[in-house]
Amino acid sequence: MPPKPGPDREVTDEQILTAIRNAYSPAVGTSDVAERVGAQRQTVDKHLRELAEEGLVETRMIGRVRVWWLSDDGRRYIDDYA
């Protein structure tokens, strides 16, 4: 049976950090990041929570939506990566 069509489940931390850096607004929602990297929202959410624990992104609930943005350490990390 062929695999189901859909977004790639594999995504790197660097892809996620780059997607946040390149977003139009300074803070983006999980679904926005998932769409930018072509991965499922749940996969991206897990990565984002791990990145927050590492101090590379910061997060906040705005109403019922969690938004994410790069921390200073995250900006340095992705600038060094690029």
Rank of each mutant, 00 (worst) to 15 (best):
M1C: 08
P2I: 08
P2Y: 05
P2L: 11
P2T: 13
P3L: 15
P3N: 10
K4F: 13
P5C: 01
P5R: 05
P7M: 08
P7G: 13
P7F: 11
D8F: 06
D8G: 11
D8V: 10
D8A: 12
D8P: 10
R9P: 03
E10W: 00
T12M: 01
D13I: 01
D13A: 05
D13Q: 05
E14Q: 03
E14D: 11
E14R: 05
E14F: 00
Q15A: 11
Q15M: 09
T18E: 08
T18D: 06
R21T: 00
R21N: 00
R21Q: 04
N22K: 15
N22L: 11
A23L: 04
Y24C: 04
Y24W: 10
S25I: 07
P26T: 13
V28H: 05
G29N: 02
G29Y: 00
G29F: 00
G29E: 04
G29C: 00
T30M: 04
S31M: 09
S31I: 06
S31Y: 11
D32L: 07
D32W: 09
V33W: 01
V33M: 02
V33T: 02
V33A: 02
A34R: 02
A34T: 02
A34D: 03
E35R: 14
R36V: 07
R36K: 15
V37E: 07
G38W: 02
A39C: 06
Q40M: 05
Q40I: 02
Q40F: 07
R41F: 06
R41P: 11
R41D: 13
R41M: 07
Q42F: 08
Q42H: 12
Q42L: 08
Q42T: 13
Q42K: 13
V44W: 03
V44G: 01
V44C: 03
D45I: 06
D45P: 02
D45V: 07
D45S: 15
K46L: 14
K46G: 10
H47S: 12
H47D: 09
H47A: 12
L48V: 05
E50D: 15
L51F: 02
A52H: 10
A52D: 13
A52F: 09
E53Y: 07
E53R: 15
E54R: 15
L56Q: 09
V57K: 06
V57S: 08
V57P: 09
R60M: 11
M61I: 09
M61L: 14
M61H: 12
I62F: 13
G63S: 06
G63N: 04
G63K: 01
R64T: 09
V65L: 03
R66E: 06
R66D: 01
R66W: 02
V67G: 01
W68H: 06
W68A: 00
W68C: 01
W69E: 15
S71P: 04
S71D: 03
D72A: 05
D72I: 01
D72Q: 05
D72Y: 00
D73Q: 09
D73Y: 04
D73R: 12
D73L: 06
G74Y: 11
G74L: 07
G74T: 07
R75T: 06
R76D: 15
I78S: 10
D79P: 01
D79M: 10
D79L: 10
D80F: 12
A82V: 14
